[in-house]
């Protein structure tokens, strides 16, 4: 009688299937440690970012400014490093400043959204333009390169064969997982996303919890921006373009509901890794990156439609039951 619980095992199964398919199609190229570390390196920025934006998704919000905030903070860290004389100390100040900018941006999002009850979609759409403009202002609309060793180390240094960003991703995932899974704040985030009215009646400060989520999203976006700038040894207003979609896609594939209340950090990281494998696989198959969107888009539609169908099945069954039993739902 036990039904196979698809939703529980589907994610690891998809990953395994992916690995198997790629191993068969491109055994030599895919199954090397080097490639493995490459995959992780390329997913690390998405992974870092999704660790914070998952908070926003969990309360039913969205952040369309990820890409340009990433650019803006990347520019901030690079410009400050230059301004203070390219010393390791300057790099530190730059990093702190960029993180502060990210947190502040998130706070502004949260404040506007909760105070005026405006859809997150609109607010972050507008700030997206603002961050882009600010990044362009700071760089004079040019690419600013930065080869200060202390800075490039962030993206390039390897420990035990894996680049530093991979460890960043892991640390962020652990922190994010810890907050969501272990702290009172994390419990409140799920509660607010699941039912904000019941949360308020249970004494939760809904507005404060929501603003916190946007701040965390801003922070990880900034960290992503710093890492990306360091990896590419440069920053410009187009740093991180495309990342908004990638991060949202990673979340959605990872089972994070954009309606709020559902989703886990391991799921989101899974989404990021799958995106990375997808990118890597397409790359190994010599599919240009510009074509990858086709596959990514179809993957999202199939994943979500499948999910929606299961939900519809359940509610249909329930509706039939109600008609028969006359339960009030």
């Amino acid at each position: 009688m036990k039904e196979f619980n698809w939703s529980k095992y589907s994610k690891p199964l998809i990953l395994v299937a992916f690995v198997v398919i790629l191993s068969i199609l491109r055994p030599k190229a895919f199954l090397s440690l080097n490639n493995f570390s490459n995959v992780l390196w390329s997913v690390s920025v998405i992974g870092i970012m999704v660790c914070g934006t998952i908070f926003v998704f969990l309360i039913g919000g969205i952040d369309l400014s990820i890409a340009t905030l990433c650019a803006f903070t990347a520019v901030v860290v690079v410009e400050i490093t230059h301004l203070l004389g390219d010393t390791p100390v300057a790099v530190c100040v730059g990093v702190v400043a960029a993180l502060a900018v990210g947190a502040l941006a998130g706070a502004v999002h949260g404040l506007i959204i909760t105070t005026f009850h405006i859809p997150a979609f609109l607010v972050t759409f507008a700030t997206q333009s603002i961050f882009l403009g600010l990044a362009m202002v700071l760089t004079n609309n040019k690419i600013v390169s930065c080869t200060v060793p202390a800075f490039t180390a962030i993206g390039a240094m390897k420990i035990l064969g894996f680049p530093l960003p991979v460890y960043f991703m892991l640390v962020m995932a652990v922190i994010s997982w810890f907050i969501l899974r272990k702290t009172v704040y994390g419990r409140y985030v799920y509660a607010v996303g699941g039912n904000s009215m019941a949360s308020a009646i249970s004494g939760i400060h809904v507005k404060g919890v929501s603003i916190g989520c946007y701040v965390l999203s801003g922070l990880t976006t900034a960290l992503g921006g710093i890492v990306l700038a360091s990896m590419t040894q440069q920053a410009s207003s187009s740093t991180g373009s495309g990342y908004t979609n990638d991060v949202i896609t990673a979340g959605v594939i990872g089972g994070v509901s954009l309606l709020g209340g559902e989703g886990t950090v391991p799921g989101a990281i899974f989404g990021a890794v799958l995106m990375g494998l997808l990118n890597n696989g397409l790359n190994l198959m010599s599919v240009p990156s510009t074509h990858a969107g086709l596959v990514k888009g179809l993957v999202i539609i199939v994943a979500v439609a499948f999910d929606a169908m299961q939900h519809a099945d359940q509610s249909k069954k329930k509706a039939r039951k109600v008609k028969k039993r006359g339960e009030s739902v």
């Binding site: 009172v184 699941g194 009646i201 209340g261």
Partner: peptide
């Protein structure tokens, strides 16, 4: 306080018994 509108105000449907019971008691 146990509210009148149970479904909309009383509990968090997606969360477990444990999380719902603990919600006010952290």
């Amino acid at each position: 306080f146990v509210p009148e509108d149970r479904r909309n105000q009383g509990f968090i449907p997606l969360l477990s018994t444990t999380r719902n019971v603990a919600l006010t008691n952290y």
